[in-house]
Simulated scan of single mutants.
Amino acid sequence: MNTPTKVAWDTKIAVILRDDLEVWQKLNVTAFATSGIAATVDGVVGEPYVDGDGTKYLPMYRQPVLIFSTDAARMKTIHERALRRDVIVAVYPEAIFETNNDEDNRATIADVPTDQLVLAGIAVRGDKREVDKVVRGATMHS
C-alpha cells in the first residue's frame, strides 16, 4: 500500500446541521446539500476509483467534508454570514422533509423571503479562511 501524501487544502467544504434533527435527517441533509457542490464546482470531485480486480466505482470529493452542528438561532446567523462572504451555499429547508421530488423541494422556498427560511442545514465551499468565518460558533459534529 502506498504511503498517503498529506495535502494542505486552500478550500474547505463544510456542512452545518441543526442540532435538533433526527440522525436520518442529518444524513439526508448532508447528502443532498453536498450534492450541489459536487454538481457545480469544477475539480472538486476526483477520479473514479478502481479496485484490484478492475471494478470501477464513482469518483468522490477530493477533499474532506467537515460536519458541524448548531442550534436554530445560530443556523440563521451562519446562513446570513455565508450569503455575505465569498462562498457558495446550498440550503436544505426543513420543509423538504415533507416532499418527495425535486420540483416540490424547490417550491418549499420559492415564496419565502431569505431571512424567513427555516433551514435544517446548509453546505458551503470556499476559501478555508472564509468558511472558518462562516461556521464560527458551530461545533464539530460528533
Rank of each mutant, 00 (worst) to 15 (best):
E98L: 06
K128Q: 06
K12D: 00
N28I: 01
I96Y: 06
A110I: 09
D132I: 12
L83S: 08
A90T: 12
Y57V: 04
A33R: 07
E103P: 10
T11N: 13
P59I: 01
A39K: 13
V44W: 00
N28F: 02
T5V: 13
V135T: 05
V124I: 08
G43C: 03
D20I: 14
L17G: 01
L117N: 07
R84D: 10
A8S: 11
A39Q: 13
K12A: 01
A90N: 09
V29Y: 04
A8D: 14
K12G: 00
E47H: 15
Q25L: 01
T30M: 06
Y92H: 15
N101R: 07
A33K: 07
L17Y: 00
A72V: 14
S142W: 10
T108H: 04
I67C: 06
I122Q: 00
N105Q: 07
A123Y: 04
G46W: 00
H141D: 11
V118M: 14
R85Y: 08
V89Y: 05
N100K: 07
I37K: 00
T34K: 04
V15K: 01
I109V: 09
K133T: 09
G137S: 02
K56D: 07
A72L: 07
H141V: 12
K26V: 08
R84Q: 08
T55P: 04
K76M: 12
M75H: 05
G137Y: 01
L17H: 01
V65K: 05
A138S: 04
D71S: 14
E98I: 03
G121R: 01
D115M: 14
R84G: 06
D20P: 12
D86V: 12
V89W: 05
F32C: 11
N2S: 12
P64L: 08
V124T: 03
R129L: 10
V44D: 02
H141Y: 14
G126T: 02
T34R: 04
D102N: 11
L117D: 10
K12Q: 03
S142E: 09
V135M: 03
T5P: 10
L66Q: 09
E98T: 07
Y92I: 12
G43K: 02
D102P: 13
N100E: 11
K6P: 12
P48K: 05
G46K: 01
R85V: 15
N100H: 12
K56P: 06
A90H: 09
E80G: 15
D111L: 15
W9A: 14
G54N: 06
P113C: 15
T139S: 15
T5N: 15
F68S: 00
V118Y: 14
N2L: 11
R85K: 15
I122H: 00
A8T: 10
N28R: 08
I37R: 00
V87E: 01
T40P: 00
K76R: 15
M75R: 02
A33Q: 11
E103I: 08
P113N: 12
R62I: 08
T11V: 15
K76V: 13
G52T: 10
L27P: 11
E98Y: 06
E98D: 13
T108F: 03
A8E: 09
D104H: 07
V23H: 14
E94T: 09
R81D: 01
A110R: 13
V7L: 13
D111P: 15
S69F: 05
E80M: 13
A33E: 05
K56H: 11
Q116Y: 10
N101P: 08
L117S: 14
G36R: 04
P113R: 14
